[in-house]
Amino acid sequence: KEFRPGDKVVLPPYGVGVVAGIAQRSVSGVSRAYYQVDFPGSRSKAYVPVEAPHSVGLRKAL
């Protein structure tokens, strides 16, 4: 896996977040693995496909 729990990442347009782990989510009846990204200071979460994280701009924070 490219990202691990605890990694600081950037996800446009949300900003800097932390990978909380990998979650299985069902979309249109198909279960897939997603990185769960939490954003400190907020209750917001984002789910990014493990198979294509760069397709939505997910990258490691510098």
Rank of each mutant, 00 (worst) to 15 (best):
I22C: 04
G57S: 04
K45C: 15
F3W: 11
L58Q: 03
G6A: 05
G17F: 03
A33N: 09
V37G: 01
K1Y: 15
V19F: 05
V30H: 11
V9G: 02
P13Q: 06
F3Y: 06
V16M: 11
A46W: 08
P53F: 08
F3K: 01
S42E: 07
S28K: 13
P12Y: 12
Y35V: 03
V27Y: 10
L62I: 11
F39S: 02
V56T: 09
K8H: 11
L58G: 03
F3Q: 00
G41W: 11
A33S: 11
R59E: 06
A61K: 07
S44L: 15
A52H: 10
K60E: 08
P49H: 04
S42N: 09
V27A: 06
S44D: 10
L11V: 05
P5C: 13
S28G: 14
P13R: 09
Y34S: 00
V9W: 02
L62A: 11
K60I: 09
F3E: 00
P49I: 06
R4N: 12
V10A: 04
L11E: 01
V16I: 12
G29K: 03
Y14S: 00
R32K: 11
G29L: 03
V56Y: 13
I22P: 01
H54Q: 10
V30L: 11
K60M: 12
K1V: 14
I22K: 03
V9C: 05
V18P: 01
A20E: 07
V27L: 08
K60G: 14
V30E: 08
D7P: 00
F3M: 03
V30N: 05
P53E: 04
A33F: 14
D38N: 13
P5A: 13
V27S: 06
R4P: 12
K60S: 09
S44I: 14
P40W: 10
G21Y: 05
A61W: 15
V16K: 07
R32L: 06
G17N: 00
K60T: 07
G15F: 04
G57D: 04
V50K: 03
A61Q: 07
G21P: 00
V9I: 05
R25G: 08
D38Y: 14
V16Q: 11
S55H: 08
R32N: 05
E2N: 10
F39Y: 02
G41C: 15
V50M: 05
V19G: 00
G21W: 04
G57E: 04
P13M: 08
L11R: 01
G29T: 02
V9Y: 07
H54N: 09
S26G: 04
Y47V: 02
R25W: 13
G41A: 11
V50R: 02
G17D: 00
R59S: 06
A20Q: 09
V18E: 04
V37T: 01
S31L: 13
V18Q: 04
S31K: 11
P5D: 04
A46D: 00
A46H: 10
Y34D: 01
S55F: 07
G21S: 08
H54S: 09
Y14L: 07
A20S: 12
E51W: 12
E51I: 07
R43P: 12
E2G: 11
V48D: 02
K8R: 12
A46Q: 11
G41L: 12
K8D: 04
F39Q: 00
R25T: 05
Y34E: 00
R32Y: 07
I22E: 02
V48Y: 03
Y34V: 03
S28C: 15
G15P: 01
H54R: 07
Y34I: 00
F39V: 02
R59H: 13
P53C: 10
Q24Y: 15
A52P: 04
P53N: 05
S55A: 10
P12T: 04
D7Q: 05
G29H: 03
S55Y: 08
A20P: 00
H54P: 04
Q36C: 11
V37N: 00
K45L: 09
V30A: 06
V50E: 02
G15Q: 02
S28H: 14
Y14E: 01
S55K: 11
G6S: 02
R32E: 04
S31I: 14
V30M: 08
P12W: 14
V56L: 08
Y35E: 04
I22T: 06
S31P: 08
A33W: 15
V30R: 09
Q24P: 03
Q24D: 07
V10H: 08
Q24F: 15
A61E: 06
R59Y: 09
Y47I: 03
V37K: 01
G21L: 10
V19N: 00
A46V: 14
A52C: 15
V50G: 00
G29D: 03
V56F: 11
R32P: 00
D7L: 03
V37C: 04
V48F: 04
E51R: 05
V37M: 01
Y34A: 00
G21F: 06
Y35M: 02
F3P: 02
V27F: 12
E51M: 07
F39M: 03
S44T: 14
P40T: 07
V48R: 00
Y35P: 01
E2K: 11
R25I: 14
S42H: 09
G57Q: 07
V19C: 05
R25A: 05
E2H: 10
V37Y: 00
Y14F: 11
A20R: 12
P49D: 08
R32W: 04
P53A: 15
L11C: 07
Y34F: 10
A23F: 15
A46N: 02
L58N: 03
S26N: 12
G29Q: 03
L58W: 03
V18M: 06
E51S: 09
Q24W: 15
L11M: 08
K60D: 07
V18I: 11
A23Q: 12
Y35H: 01
V9A: 00
V16N: 08
V50C: 05
E2A: 13
D7V: 04
S26K: 12
G15W: 05
L58Y: 01
G29W: 02
V10M: 08
V30C: 10
R59C: 09
S28R: 13
Y14W: 12
K1N: 14
V9P: 07
F39W: 02
A61M: 11
D38T: 14
Q36Y: 07
V27T: 08
V30P: 14
S44G: 12
K60L: 14
Q36W: 07
G57N: 04
D38I: 15
P53V: 12
P53W: 15
K8I: 15
V18D: 01
V48T: 01
V9K: 01
S42F: 10
P13A: 06
S31R: 12
Q36F: 07
E51V: 06
Q24E: 10
L58F: 04
G6Q: 02
P13I: 05
H54A: 10
P49Y: 05
V37S: 02
